[in-house]
């Protein structure tokens, strides 16, 4: 399906030449103040690039600082150290220009709006005239056709996440940020949503950063997986995922897929099952 390109009004082209990555982190650190004397290091010395049109997954156990990295990229937190740029500018600039789409573990749908109005919300926030055709197209793309007039409470958890993803894609964002979007779903629904997201992404090819603790999810969806470890959060491994796109769910049954999953699981828990110190 071709999705009409509706770019938010941008005063000047923010995306520079191919030399500038969509997301760039240079020795980024983040400390959180607990009280007057104590500070906790959430992220330390993280450098990474996400190229334009790439799908990168950050994989790690809970508390490893992966969500903190995503929140800094999303302009929701400020780095304490290092520099961070999105589309060659600051995250705050990107947010103000409506260039980022985001979906969290909380669907963050507004309970008083219909699914249609929830998906159309970014138009309002960006002072853009709503294009009902585009909204309907995205609702169709995420498989929610027929539920436009429903309210969030009438939908299942998986359907709410679909609506949240449709909303994130509405303005054709230059960067799509996904923070455990399927973290609250059951295993079956989660796998199904991964297949759906892969299909949607293969059609849109939006630069995407996914934060997850599921190895399967990261390997199935991403071009590159960055593995993090906690206290303080830092990168321990980067693995390129070679599968062709669009990826068929059968990929998950191949030996190569399992090999990658094992390798990444091993990277996450180095001593597990080996008996090594």
């Amino acid at each position: 399906m071709s999705v009409a390109s509706i770019q938010p009004t941008a005063p000047e082209p923010i995306i520079g030449t191919a030399g500038i990555p969509a997301i760039n982190l240079d020795r980024v650190g983040k400390n959180f103040r607990l009280d007057a004397r104590r500070e906790v290091k959430a992220v330390s010395d993280v450098s990474m690039n996400v190229g334009k049109g790439a799908f990168v997954a950050i994989l790690g156990p809970s508390g490893c600082g992966k969500s903190t990295i995503l929140r800094m990229i999303a302009s929701l937190d400020e780095p304490t150290k290092g520099t961070l740029s999105v589309l060659g500018t600051t995250p705050a600039d990107c947010a103000a220009n409506h260039r980022m789409g985001i979906a969290f573990q909380d669907h963050a749908l507004l309970p008083w709006l219909t699914i249609f109005d929830n998906v159309a919300l970014p138009y309002r926030l960006a002072h853009l005239k709503a294009d009902p055709g585009r909204v309907a197209q995205l609702i169709d793309l995420v498989g929610l056709a027929g539920f436009e007039k429903a309210r969030p409470k009438q939908l299942s958890g998986g359907m709410r996440q679909r609506a949240a993803i449709a909303r994130a894609l509405l303005l054709n964002p230059d960067v799509l940020l996904l923070d455990e979007p399927f973290g609250a779903l059951d295993a079956v629904t989660r796998r199904q949503m991964n297949v759906e997201l892969q299909r949607i992404w293969s059609e849109q090819r939006t630069t995407t950063l996914l934060v997850t603790h599921s190895v399967d999810e990261a390997v199935f969806l991403a071009d590159r997986v960055i593995v993090m470890s906690g206290r303080p959060g830092h990168i321990i491994r980067e693995v390129a995922i070679p599968f062709e796109r669009p990826r068929h769910p059968d990929v998950m049954r191949t030996v190569e897929f399992h090999h990658l999953v094992n390798e990444l699981t091993e990277a996450l828990h180095p001593t597990e099952g080996t008996g090594a110190p």
Partner: peptide, 29 residues
């Protein structure tokens, strides 16, 4: 506010007026 909605509004570049008009006021009803 509904969980996550304040973050959503910030990432979508919503002005203070927008946050009041489309998020805080309806949530207060």
């Amino acid at each position: 506010l509904p969980p996550g909605s304040a973050d959503l509004f910030r990432v979508n570049g919503a002005s203070t007026w927008m946050q009041l008009r489309y998020l805080a006021l309806p949530a207060a009803v």
